[in-house]
């Protein structure tokens, strides 16, 4: 009982705190601060039509590096945490047979999903989306595959290779930025190209591709570990 009162008090105080914050919110009518700068100069300095991309990959690229790292760390931890013992590897997961609709739909949809994911991250600098979104879409495809066939063997070798190479590639591009251009992760290591074209905005498509592949690989890895951990029971 006392506990409930305390929790109620806590939530009320937070509500009051949030209300204070809410009260100081006024909907804005224009951009100020760094947002204004990005809006005015983003297109010509970075060359990407998608301003959010230019912020994510170039201006605040260091944050993105951190973001990728978090996923990487989470995936690595799950890898060693959920590691199976040798003799469990060969077990089969018993489950109800998956329905035919699911299996058929999966066969049709999975390649499309992969394609769509690749499209999203390649065009990250032009349309909404980017590496993370694309990678997540690819991973959705993998999830669908697992749901359709719980015993599917996913080729972890490929996943590891893709993950490593994209990761190292990302860091190498960043270092090129340091050597060839203005700073770590600067995208002007190649020319900015024509605005709005596929090969524009310097290194951004390259970086986003690396990110997309890496994220896709990592999430697939996590899903794979979840899948295999069912063999433990």
């Amino acid at each position: 009982m006392l506990k409930n009162i305390i929790i109620a008090v806590i939530l009320i105080v937070f509500a009051v705190l949030f209300f204070d914050l809410f009260m100081l919110y006024e909907a804005r009518t224009g951009l100020t601060g760094i947002a204004q700068y990005y809006a005015q100069n983003g297109a010509k300095e970075v060359g990407a039509a998608n301003l959010v991309t230019s912020i994510v990959v170039t201006y605040r690229g260091f944050d993105t590096l951190g973001e990728v790292t978090i996923l990487f760390v989470a995936a690595s931890i799950i890898s060693f945490f959920l590691k199976l013992k040798e003799n469990d590897e060969s077990k089969n997961i018993s489950s109800k047979d998956t329905t035919e609709i699911l299996v058929t739909a999966s066969n049709v949809l999975v390649p499309v999903i992969f394609l769509f994911g690749i499209y999203v991250f390649i065009n990250g600098h032009l349309t909404p989306g980017g590496g993370f979104q694309g990678g997540a879409i690819i991973a959705t495809g993998v999830a669908l595959m697992i749901l359709a066939n719980p015993n599917i063997k996913i080729n972890t070798q490929i996943i590891h290779w893709v993950e490593s190479i994209s990761g190292v590639g990302y860091v190498v591009v960043g270092i090129f930025g340091l050597i060839l251009a203005g700073g770590f992760l600067d995208n002007k290591i190649t020319g900015l190209g024509e605005f709005g074209a596929l090969f524009s905005a310097g290194a951004i498509p390259i970086i986003y591709s690396f990110i997309g592949l890496k994220v896709g690989a990592e999430i697939s890895n996590i899903l794979n570990k979840y899948q295999k951990s069912q063999k433990n029971d």
Binding site: R28, L31, L51, V52, I55, V56, D63, E67, F132
Partner: peptide, 19 residues
């Protein structure tokens, strides 16, 4: 384009936050 768009910075932040 600063008269036409919403603030892009929170969108970048939220991307990171979701991940």
């Amino acid at each position: 384009v600063s008269d036409s768009i919403v603030d892009p910075v929170p969108q970048a932040l939220v991307l990171t936050s979701i991940v």
